[in-house]
Design a protein around this nucleic acid. Structure first.
Lengths: 133, 133
DNA sequence: GTCACTGTACTAAGCACTTAATACAGTCAT
DNA sequence: ATGACTGTATTAAGTGCTTAGTACAGTGAC
């Protein structure tokens, strides 16, 4: 997996593991691979994985059985709440950035619709909110 | 200004300064306050401001007159391109995160519309993409 | 000339993150 | 009992970010 060097890897792992939980890639009650195995899969140090999982545990998204391994929570409400948190976080980030650029609601909506299908198109916003010329 | 401790401040300054340029808060050709003044305004070290402005210069968004100060580019096309880059970046980030959560296009659209007006509402997504219960 | 400003450069210190390398206690199959 | 697995803890090293402090060259007003 590729990581952004400009923010801590353990934080990016928290996001990735959370995503796996809400998409049931890591199903409720399922056993999570060991820190050494995850570290090898992700290409990072076991200590870094450990730190990310400790944070997931703090959020009660998983629990450690100490010697048997680590398991995803069986609390479906907690998982649904996590999904809502992540969705709202993504939406609020976009709204904050779009408003910061001075975009209007319909402009933002059109932009999202456009980027939804093709992630590597080139969009020309020049003139829509641009300068006098 | 408040900064996220989990990513470099100079990078957050690049984003903030870019925002000021595309919103004409820093108008084309306008003089940019000195590094010491900006640092005092933002509550950071002048060295950190310097690093952010050096990056803006590398992107040809401003140029240094060495002793007279620093000025925003007068190239309106470059500024329009920057606005498009920032808008697309925000949209692509949201699309990537929303798809990663398994959201459908109309779900994503509704979520954005909802978060556009009220940034601190509580949205209940439980059941929309949730578990069997 | 003097003074106040500009951008720029450099050092030293402190801090968080990441890594490698061990080490230890508990569980479980054999 | 032995060996292989679990989570967890610790140390040392290297790196990047941020800060404080200092310094220097060039410009312009007086």
């Amino acid at each position: 997996m590729e990581f952004d060097t400009s923010s801590p890897i353990w934080g990016q792992l928290v996001a990735e593991f959370s995503r796996r939980i809400v998409t049931s890639q890591w199903p409720p009650g399922g056993r999570i691979a060991g820190v050494r195995e995850l570290a090898a899969e992700l290409g990072v140090n076991p200590n870094t994985v450990q730190r990310a999982l400790a944070e997931l545990e703090r959020q009660e998204l998983c629990r450690s059985e100490r010697t048997a391994g680590r398991f995803v929570t069986t609390d479906a409400d907690r998982i649904d709440a996590l999904r809502a948190e992540l969705a709202e976080g993504a939406a609020d980030d976009f709204v904050r950035r779009a408003r910061g650029l001075g975009m209007a609601a319909d402009q933002a909506r059109r932009l999202i619709e456009e980027r939804w299908t093709h992630d590597d198109d080139i969009t020309d916003l020049a003139g829509a909110t641009g300068h006098d010329r």
